[in-house]
């Protein structure tokens, strides 16, 4: 079953979760951090399971970046 991607607040204690995420990267090199992130994404993707939900998440993640739209016309 496809479950719609949740984009409204869904974390009970957002500050704790954010702090856990940062703490997990404490003391890691850039390469180690990249690897950790990749493992985390794969674990979460598997947890989601549903491909449509995952692709929705991917699309939302892509669309929300402020620095990665190289050719949007821009302004000085």
């Amino acid at each position: 079953m496809t479950s719609p991607l949740i984009l409204t607040p869904n974390l009970d204690r957002p500050d704790d979760v954010y702090a856990e995420l940062l703490a997990a990267h404490d003391g890691l090199t850039k390469a180690q951090s990249d690897a950790l992130n990749a493992r985390l994404i794969l674990i979460l993707a598997n947890h989601i399971g549903d491909q449509a939900t995952f692709i929705q998440a991917l699309t939302k993640a892509k669309g929300a970046g402020s620095n990665d739209r190289p050719h949007d016309g821009g302004h000085d």
Binding site: D34, A35, A38, I41, L42, I43, N46
Partner: peptide, 19 residues
């Protein structure tokens, strides 16, 4: 980045069947 994900899959596969 594709190497990072590939290596992540292999590292996870050692411990978790899902990978």
């Amino acid at each position: 980045i594709s190497r990072i994900f590939r290596d992540a899959v292999l590292d996870l596969s050692e411990h978790h069947p899902f990978a």
